[in-house]
Nucleic acid binder design. Structure first.
Lengths: 154, 154
DNA sequence: GTTGAAAAAATATTGAG
DNA sequence: CTCAATATTTTTTCAAC
């Protein structure tokens, strides 16, 4: 799971546009497209590249609202609780955290009614939370799918 | 910015794998690849498809730690503050929220020292926050880049 | 809005350095 | 690992329905 500068250039290109032709990446980094192809395959196999996804505007597919949800879980019920949460429709991300919450997750819903249903009928009643908090996202001011790829690790 | 069932099928395919050949999508939905091509172009132009991104393992490119940061902003300084935050390296997402925090953001850092530096030298000292909280992400238990595409909006 | 066919371009594969 | 050549497949364009 080691990567070199050539790999880093390839990752930068594919983070920016996952559909960039390998031949164009090859041109940029002055290598053959077969090399790019080999390296991409290797990074896919090693799990460095986990996939390629279209970034779709949530509103266009019917999600008018999203929220960040903090949860405090009763001791000893973490695993059980996580399994339930993963299965809830609209849950996009579940993080285990230090600090005020044990779990912070991001959820999407069609509208406020769906969000209410998601929170109160699917999450809160799961039983196993001592406290929850729903922070409605009024707007995502900034978002990038391109983490800067540093020239070297460390 | 209206989409029909054919568009939805295309979005499902491209959310799952942004590099799926149009010809294969065409086969699946039993239309010509020229049609798929046209529709993708249209959805790109309309902003329904915002881009295509490789999902790269943050650890592979040197990010060993991430955090969710809650911020409370002094009234009247929101715009100024947001501009500063956007420019901070490692900030991946900035959300404006209701509830306990005005802003909730997700940040990535190489290690705890970098996270400390990011928080205390780049964020906290921005001045304009009455309170901040850093919740270190111990693990991302679940994450999807594929929001379910409902058959119909609503 | 869709199609089919042709042209252009890209990708996968192979063999060799 | 990298390259170059080839075979295969895909993307793109366009006239026509």
């Amino acid at each position: 799971m080691e990567i070199d500068d050539t790999d880093r250039e390839i990752l930068r290109a594919l983070q920016e546009d996952a559909r960039t032709p390998f031949s164009e990446i090859a041109r940029r980094i002055e290598m053959s497209s077969a090399t790019v192809h080999d390296r991409v395959n290797r990074m896919e196999e090693e799990g460095i590249i986990r996939g390629y996804h279209a970034d779709v505007d949530p509103k266009a597919i019917g999600y008018e609202i999203s929220a960040i949800v903090g949860l405090r879980v009763e001791q000893g019920r973490e695993d059980e609780t996580l399994e339930h949460l993963k299965a809830v429709d609209g849950v996009q991300e579940i993080n285990l955290t230090t600090g005020e919450w044990d779990i912070v997750m991001r959820v999407f819903a069609a509208n406020t009614e769906d969000l209410r249903q998601l929170m109160f009928e699917e999450v809160s009643q799961l039983d196993g939370f001592s406290r929850t908090q729903t922070m409605v996202v009024l707007g995502t001011e900034y978002e990038t799918h391109e983490l800067p790829v540093p020239d070297r690790n460390q």
